[in-house]
Design a binder for these strands. Sequence first.
DNA 1: AGTTGTCAAGCTAGT
DNA 2: ACTAGCTTGACAACT
Length: 293
Amino acid sequence: MKIGYPCINRNIGCTANSTFRLASYSRENLISKVENNLSCLRNILEFNVKQGLLFFRISSDLVPFASHPICRFDWLNHFKTDFKEIGAFIQKNDLRISMHPDQFVLINAKDSDIVKRSINELEYHCDLLDALGLDKTARVQIHVGGVYGEKDKSMQRFIREYRKLNMKIKKRLVIENDDKLYSVKDCLVISNETGIPVLFDSFHHQCLNHGETNRESLVMAKSTWKNSDGSLMVDYSSQKSGARKGTHTEHINMRLFRQFLAETEGLNFDIMLEIKDKEKSALKVIKALNNLI
DNA sequence: AGTTGTCAAGCTAGT
DNA sequence: ACTAGCTTGACAACT
């Protein structure tokens, strides 16, 4: 079981997701931001290894505007050596890596231009992971997409569009249950048709389910991952008290987390802690797990 | 130096 | 009709 946190480290004092406005796009700006981001990514990964945090989500902003038509720069080639070095570090330390393109990526959009842009964005994520030299256990997670007032048709559209994707994307893409539209059960239907692995988000499951327990849903999601896909990825969070339903907590609630661990005892998976204080909660969990052994 | 409006992309639900 | 929220953060223009 590997423990991790997404994109940002609040301790080190650098960011691996620094970007700029589209209006200030230039080759120089892009190069300097990517240089900064890559150097910070190294720092974060080194910190993580020292602390025993072996799961990390790389920010989609690592290469700003990579899939935008304005970007004509061959960043893949230009930073080829850096990617290789960072990738070697990841492999040497057996780190698990994920990426999570944002809400604009919609495979099942009705507008074919949106689908096209989405595929370009997925291609960027997969090119990056390929450049790092990572195998298919490094994954790119997205949600199913929009409902457009007709869920069945929208799910069918996802399936159709997924089947058309090239292998570069297919080998890394996984779907994650969301908190409002597509439950784990919905994702499993799509997985049955396509073979796409289902990432289990415990907090989203808490917000949207059909009465299944965490364990039941996690086991079902786990069954969609083949050995070569790596172990099941789980996103974990809990409700921020007093806030709108679905708001992630600032700090981890260890009582709830222990409860989750107890519920899922004996099952192997990697956990991404989607908690706002980032590595702070992740370190708390590492400490707690060490005390259990 | 510190503050604050705004940022490529889209959907949904709530006002 | 409009906007907050999404993994929210951070850029950049303004005091």
